[in-house]
């Protein structure tokens, strides 16, 4: 799988950074405007999937492999859990322990932006990892179909 034509590659090279930027914007402004960790994470994952579809899996895996994807996945999940556990210092689980600050500002609402970032990292890494699984391990299936008799039973 060596990717698509040069037109697709050029367009992807220009567009991908904007997609990632939009995803990060959606994650960071989740507590003020529509959005949040889930859609932002899915948008970032879509940017990586776009790279993988356009350039082939070797190029995509060289910059961001499945090991680092699962590592980021775990980091996001544990970050969210850690934010929830830190609430125990003030009394109970999921306590919003940071000062709320001025409303309608980017730095406000206590732990909510941090939780949003953790969830965004988790969701994006998770979806990218499952696409890696479908692309790499699924490819072995197609290869086994093309040359029957060679697969181990």
């Amino acid at each position: 799988m060596q990717g698509m034509t040069i037109i697709v590659k050029t367009v992807v090279r220009i567009v991908t950074s904007f997609i990632v930027l939009y995803g990060i914007y959606i994650v960071l402004y989740g507590h003020l405007t529509p959005g949040g960790g889930f859609p932002g994470g899915v948008i970032v994952a879509a940017a990586y999937i776009l790279i993988m579809l356009a350039y082939g899996k070797e190029v995509a895996l060289r910059s961001f492999g499945d090991k680092s994807a699962s590592l980021l996945d775990n980091l996001g999940a544990f970050g969210f859990l850690a934010i929830a556990l830190l609430g125990l210092t003030g009394g109970y689980f999921f306590l919003n322990f940071i000062n709320h600050g001025q409303p309608f500002r980017l730095v406000s609402a206590g732990t909510l932006p941090l939780s949003n970032i953790a969830i965004g990292v988790k969701v994006s890494a998770c979806l990218y990892a499952v696409f890696i699984a479908l692309a790499i391990f699924g490819r072995a299936v197609y290869r086994a179909m093309e040359e029957p008799g060679k697969e181990e039973r």
């Binding site: 405007t33 206590g110 949003n116």
Partner: peptide, 28 residues
């Protein structure tokens, strides 16, 4: 209570944070 202008996010991440934690587990 939360300081967030988006009420949906304040429910997802603060009032009903357990749901989101369970969701992360299911996705994982």
């Amino acid at each position: 209570r939360t300081g967030a202008a988006n009420i949906v996010m304040s429910i997802v991440l603060d009032f009903r944070g357990y749901d989101t934690l369970g969701e992360a587990t299911v996705l994982f």
